[in-house]
Write a protein that binds this DNA or RNA. Structure first.
Lengths: 246, 246
DNA sequence: CTGGAACCTGTGATTTTCCTGAGAAACGCA
DNA sequence: TGCGTTTCTCAGGAAAATCACAGGTTCCAG
């Protein structure tokens, strides 16, 4: 089930209306805290664990709808944790966190059951988007929720990665896509450059803050070109997106 | 009966609308888990057993619509298990798992009765496809469900392995065929290279991830050559297939 | 009117990602 | 066994994406 909160954001809910439950497993405290904060902001209920043993225990009593699992844990191998988790919760989808260079060797077979993974360092938008996808497809949330974001005559499909305005297809790069997704998930709300950086760029990004300006500029060229603008600057505050009429 | 899920995937269902039931029998835990995951993702209901005795017991009360049976079990010979299964469930189709070098004539006789087999190491696409075929033909699922995948003017017949675009027949190798089938079973959805590897290549494949790029390249040469392309790259995300018009 | 802060955007270097030719190895079949 | 086919590795090159930098513009306060 999806509901629209008073702030205009769409939330995933379980069929009985209770919040989605997610278990986060990572040994780095900074990561679990970062993720917990971001996922709570989605309106989800979060528990975290720092090792495999704790993960299995917590899973047993918390019964999460999805698990975020680092492949590199101190006490046991990610695959071992996965096995035990599966025994407790056979149908729960898992989002794996892996180091960038470790991707190809140990991931084999993992995404086959509908699971997914992201590589460290990740962006929060990416994690949230993948989790939403997993939960949506697992059936823990109402199946009617679909993968389309719509603001005015602008649509974004999270499955096909297609974006169109007034029926016309628009090609976006990966970063542009994530930025637009973030804006569209928060329509009519001013998002500061800091917020955007924190969400759309990976957590270890060390570059200039004006990449945001740059990418806003790119988006405008593709989305607002020659049309009634939908992306607006709030000087000193940030940016927002809203339907053209109004 | 087939229904189309909100995600756009086609699911096999039993005539009464309940999910298809499959029993997986293998002594290697990693195999039963891999298969269980993948088959659950198809929307099927799965039970697994690690030996012949357990298989017969589970079959008795679970009444599966199909059985995946490893020929190499610790407690009894595959044939013995088959015999006892047949006593419980005379009409259930069986998909045998055999080692590559195992005697094939033994299997050949068995598959005459409508059963089928795949050799280890298998790809999940192959197992799923064969199971779907078995279930379809056994009549446990609605017979009207057919074996044709169609995307735009591109068609793929899962029974005859024939592929054609705009009426013109196209010859594909086995790997090309499985890759195209996977793409066509998920039209308009971006599939990552990891997903494709996990699904189309066998579970023990340890090679470079760029085989996917290579085979996409082969497919394009045969399917998109000189035509409006249907296979699209989403840089940094994966590949998708969709009808040419749109 | 003026100066400064905030924002916009053109240019181009760097990095990442993807494509594909060539050839080696494995396979299938006569 | 030998030959054609298929699968896969490797590596070079092309294309695309990302981002730093810097000069220009807009806005607002004083």
């Amino acid at each position: 089930m999806t509901t629209t909160s008073p702030q205009g954001r769409t939330e995933l809910l379980r069929p009985d209306g209770s919040p989605v439950r997610v278990l986060v497993v990572d040994d780095e405290l900074s990561i679990t805290e970062l993720l917990s904060m971001a996922l709570r902001y989605e309106g989800w209920q979060i528990r975290s664990a720092g090792d495999g043993t704790g993960a299995v225990q917590t899973a047993r009593e918390f019964r999460p709808d999805a698990v975020v699992l680092d492949m590199m844990l101190p006490d046991m191998d990610g695959l071992a944790v996965l096995g035990r988790l599966r025994r407790e919760l056979p149908d729960v989808p898992v989002l794996f966190l892996t180091a960038k260079d470790a991707v190809e060797d140990r991931i084999a077979g993992l995404t086959a059951g509908g699971d997914d993974y992201v590589t460290k360092p990740f962006s929060l938008e990416e994690v949230v988007a993948r989790l939403r996808g997993l939960i949506r497809r697992s059936g823990a949330a109402d199946r009617r929720s679909d993968s389309m974001l719509v603001v005015g005559d602008l649509t974004l499909d999270e499955d096909s990665h297609e974006v169109s305005r007034a029926g016309e297809n628009i090609h976006l790069t990966a970063t542009e896509f994530e930025l637009l997704r973030f804006l569209m998930r928060n329509p009519r709300r001013v998002l500061s450059k800091a917020q955007i950086l924190d969400r759309v760029w990976s957590y270890d990004f060390g570059g200039q803050a004006n990449v945001v300006e740059l990418y806003i500029s790119y988006l405008r060229r593709k989305i607002d070109a020659g049309r009634e603008p939908m992306i607006h600057t709030r000087r000193g505050a940030g940016y927002l997106i809203k339907p053209a009429a109004s």
